[in-house]
């Protein structure tokens, strides 16, 4: 049975250890039995169970001491520590700051005087933080209020107005909406009117020009001359032809990038085909394409659109 004096001795030695090398404080319950404490000490001093005569001897001494429950004297501790340093040097163990990672190598130690960093002897080190910082941390100081004034108010109004204006500009490309089963009456009034925007194609790379919106210029004349081969009078035929061309189009496009001459020829041909479609057909064509795009887009953008529509009903409810 350990006497009270033993207990004190153990503590002081542990403290001393901590002062030099940092042994995390042992839980209170364990220190009741010095035997356990010493054996853990042993573990700490000689991290591996390697057979080494001199060390083994030391271990035996230590073990006997712990078995008998007698305290480890200060001198002995010093000797042991010295031995430990030698041992570790021969094994070229690199001393590191203790981290969660190297628990397996026993307790790593600091090579510098911990007091220089500001921890006095026996003081508990802060725990290792293993979790991310909180999402909304408490602030120690209240933020300074925002600047207010006439100019700030004006800029604020300007910003909010700009945000609304931008939505009405032709540059705001909206995602094509999904087709609703029932066309809402209110939808018709929610549509924003946008002006047409015709980019200056002279400033843009040619490939950006949409094919169906070919500029009717001198090009069309040339096209008329060359592309009078098959006479497509039947609208159905025309559609078929377009579809064919579309399929071909993909292949042709990549060619175009390599061979410029080919590309330009192809272009004129396409221009010609567009030329032949009259307005009605073009509309049909557009619609088809739109639908294709829609299928894809819908799965992605289920934004608040239906919310807005439903609000019709909700509003009634809220009014009465």
């Amino acid at each position: 049975m350990p006497s009270p004096r033993d207990l004190w001795a153990y503590h002081s030695s542990a403290d001393m250890l901590r002062g030099v090398d940092f042994l995390p404080a042992e839980p209170q319950g364990k220190s009741k039995n010095t035997g356990v404490g010493s054996s853990s000490l042993l573990q700490w001093i000689f991290p591996t169970q390697e057979s080494n005569r001199g060390l083994l001897h030391c271990r035996r001494i230590l073990y006997q001491l712990s078995y008998r429950g007698s305290p480890i004297s200060y001198d002995l501790m010093l000797i042991l520590l010295h031995l430990q340093r030698l041992y570790l040097q021969t094994r070229k163990v690199i001393f590191t700051v203790p981290m969660a990672g190297n628990k397996g190598r026993g307790r790593a130690a600091y090579t510098f005087n911990i007091e220089a960093v500001g921890f006095s002897r026996g003081e508990k080190l802060p725990d290792v933080v293993l979790k991310p910082p909180p999402l909304f941390p408490d602030t120690d100081y209240k933020p300074v209020p925002l600047k207010t004034g006439e100019s700030e108010d004006y800029v604020l109004a300007l910003k909010q107005e700009l945000r609304e204006t931008v939505k009405r500009m032709p540059y705001f490309v909206e995602t094509p909406e999904e087709k609703q089963d029932i066309e809402r009456y209110s939808k018709r009034y929610m549509k924003v009117y946008k002006e047409e925007w015709i980019p200056d194609w002279r400033r843009l790379p040619r490939e950006l020009m949409p094919r169906k919106k070919c500029i009717k210029g001198p090009k069309s004349k040339k096209a008329k001359d060359t592309g009078k081969g098959p006479s497509l009078t039947n609208p159905a035929d025309v559609l078929k032809k377009i579809e064919e061309l579309e399929k071909k189009g993909d292949g042709e496009k990549s060619d175009e990038e390599n061979e410029e001459k080919e590309g330009s020829k192809e272009k004129s041909k396409e221009g010609d085909d567009d030329e032949e479609d009259d307005a009605a057909e073009q509309e049909e064509y557009d619609e088809e394409e739109q639908e294709e795009e829609n299928d894809y887009i819908n799965s992605y953008f289920e934004d608040g659109d239906d919310f807005g529509v439903d609000s019709d009903d909700n509003m009634d409810e809220a009014t009465y």
Partner: peptide
Amino acid sequence: TGTSLDQVKKALCVLIQH
């Protein structure tokens, strides 16, 4: 981006314009 060519063209036009 898995976007249709027409949309990419349009988007690029807008971005270049700005």
